[in-house]
Simulated assay, not measured.
Amino acid sequence: MQNLTELSTQLGQLLQQGDQILVTAESCTGGGVATAITDIAGSSTWFDRAFITYSNDAKMEMLGVRSKTLGQFGAVSEAVVVEMALGALRHSNGTLSVAISGIAGPGGGSEDKPVGTVCFAWASSLGWQKVETCLFAGDRSEVRTKAVCHALTTLLEHMTDEEPFS
C-alpha cells in the first residue's frame, strides 16, 4: 500500500495540471480522504470541500441522496455512493468526486455485507463514472486506511489515463 502523502501529492499535481477540482463525500472514512489531501500544502488550489455524511439524514440533506435509494439498497451500496458522488459535484465547485460508504466494524456487518465491505463511486462533471465494492480485511482502523488508499489510488489511475475525462 502506497503512502497516503505520496498518493495525495501525485494526485494534486495531476489535478492542478488538468485544471480539475476534487470534492469528497465520505461516510465510513469520516473525512480520511480529505485529511490526506489537506495534509498537502497548496491543496486549496485543487480541492474544494469534503462532505462527511455519516448519517442517512446527512446523505439526504447535504448530497441529495434519495430516501427511496437508502431504503431499497441501504447506506452501504453502490446505488447510494453513486448518488453521493453526483450530489457532491452538484453541491460544490468540484469537477471530480469520490464517495465512500462502508462497514468499518467491529460491528454492523451482516451475511450480505460483512465488516470490511466498502462501496466507492467516482464521478466527473464531464460524465465519467466508476463504481466498485471492495472487501477489506483488518480492524476498523485498517479498513478505513485501506479505503482511503483505494479511493486515492483509483483517482490517481484515472488521472494518468491518456484521456481521463472522456
Rank of each mutant, 00 (worst) to 15 (best):
L7F: 01
G108L: 09
Q2L: 12
L86W: 10
V118M: 05
A75M: 04
W46Q: 01
V80I: 07
L155I: 05
I21N: 02
I37P: 02
A121H: 01
L63V: 08
K146Y: 02
E142H: 11
P114T: 09
T145P: 00
E61I: 13
T35M: 05
S27N: 06
G116K: 06
F136G: 01
K113R: 14
V82P: 03
S92P: 10
M159K: 09
D39P: 06
T35Y: 08
V80C: 14
A147E: 06
A104K: 06
V65E: 03
T145I: 12
G18R: 15
G107P: 04
G108Q: 11
R140L: 08
D112T: 14
I21L: 13
S27E: 03
S141V: 13
A88L: 10
V65T: 11
D112S: 15
G105P: 09
H91W: 11
D57V: 12
A85H: 11
W122P: 01
C119G: 00
E26V: 09
E6K: 13
T153D: 12
C134F: 11
G42W: 07
F47C: 08
Q13S: 13
V143E: 03
G138C: 05
Q129K: 14
F136A: 06
L22Y: 02
I52F: 01
V148N: 00
V33D: 01
A85N: 08
A50W: 00
V131D: 02
A36Q: 00
R66V: 06
D39G: 14
A36T: 01
T35L: 11
V131H: 10
T9R: 14
E163N: 15
A58V: 05
T9C: 07
T9I: 09
A99I: 06
G74R: 08
M60D: 09
A99P: 07
L14T: 09
D139S: 10
T24P: 02
S55L: 01
L155N: 01
L89C: 08
V143Y: 00
L15T: 06
G102A: 07
G127Y: 12
V23Q: 10
L22K: 00
S67K: 12
G127T: 12
T5D: 10
F73V: 08
G31F: 05
M62D: 14
R49A: 06
E157R: 07
T117V: 05
A121Q: 02
T153F: 00
T9E: 10
T153Y: 02
K113N: 12
K113P: 05
A104S: 13
D19R: 14
W128I: 09
V81S: 11
V115D: 00
S110A: 09
M1A: 15
V80P: 03
E61K: 15
M60H: 13
L15C: 12
G64R: 02
D39E: 15
S110M: 07
F47Q: 10
K68Q: 15
K130C: 10
Q129I: 13
A79M: 14
A85F: 08
F136W: 03
E142I: 09
R90G: 05
R49G: 03
V118F: 01
G18N: 15
